[in-house]
Amino acid sequence: MAKIKVVHYINQFFAQIGGEEKADYPAELRVGEIIGPGTAFESAFGDEAEIVATIVCGDSYFNENIDKAKADILEMVKSQKPDLFIAGPAFNAGRYGVACGTITDAVLNELGIPALTGMYEENPGVDMFASKLYIVSTKNSAAGMRAAVKKMAPLALKLARHEKIGASVVEGYIPTGVRVNFFEKERGAKRAVDMLLKKLSDKPFVTEYPMPDFDRVAPNPAVKDMAHAKIALVTSGGIVPKGNPDHIESSSASHYGEYCLDGVEALSSETYETAHGGYDPVYANDDPNRVLPVDVLRQLEKEGVIGKLHDKYYSTVGNGTAVASAKAFAAEYAQKLLEDHVDAVILTST
């Protein structure tokens, strides 16, 4: 097998051009050269990969001329047709970290070339790029070079070979927000007891799942004229026409259903059922109005309390369904509801 071709990006300091006084050094391609940390990578790669070129750029130059620097460097990378791009590691150098993150992101997403960088967890580049890139976690200074290369080199090779990337703790990258399974050395109960012992003695411990932040949407104005309003029903309780014609999964639904309520006065156990696998289905199957109250809304429509019950309803199964999928479903049918001039929605959940 041919060796994997690598292009390496470093700043003026690691290229031994100079410190802060040389930070305005413009981007430069050095074909066939292996410089500074590159030698450590080269020896870690063994026969698997070789650095075919090194790109050097001053940190100030990059950050002050970001668009031009990025475009120039992308051209340089492209010219070498590499299989892999590595930037840094940047340790705790802020501008270097931002440069490494920016250029790694561009190489990965604009050129489609596997790319990797490394930084200390508090580097501002981490906040900006951790969710988009694999950033190997390093120590805060160049004293951590050996340890950094030891983690970066094998992960870089895996990326170049398009192999499956394991969990962050296994591979050594900073969590990207994408949850990846792996087998621990100790069973869960043991890990829980160990964590509790640490917590009890006020020693540091690391949670395996940091709590997320939630975003909020401001409420829309109230419905002014209910007697003329068109009301739509939506449910995550999985009410579907009997036989589940769209095969909505009992858990982890991959799609939603749109069903017509034209001429339906009430739901009945003969014609509707639930596809939801997360709750005791007997009650909803006996009387689906218990989840999707079509019967009551028809009565309110007749009495003129509401203007009209929208003649379509949307249904999916909330059970185990990824938040991102549910969000995508809703974003899609919300547009349909808008087009159909629906004034308000009653969403029922089980």
């Binding site: 829309n220 109230a222 938040v323 919300a334 004034d343 029922t348 959940s349």
Partner: peptide, 25 residues
Amino acid sequence: MVKEIERAGIPVVHVCTVTPISMTV
């Protein structure tokens, strides 16, 4: 889901048993 309907500009009421989840989402 409820948030996406709200985001589209349609007022929505969430009828659900576990109101704390509704608050969280």
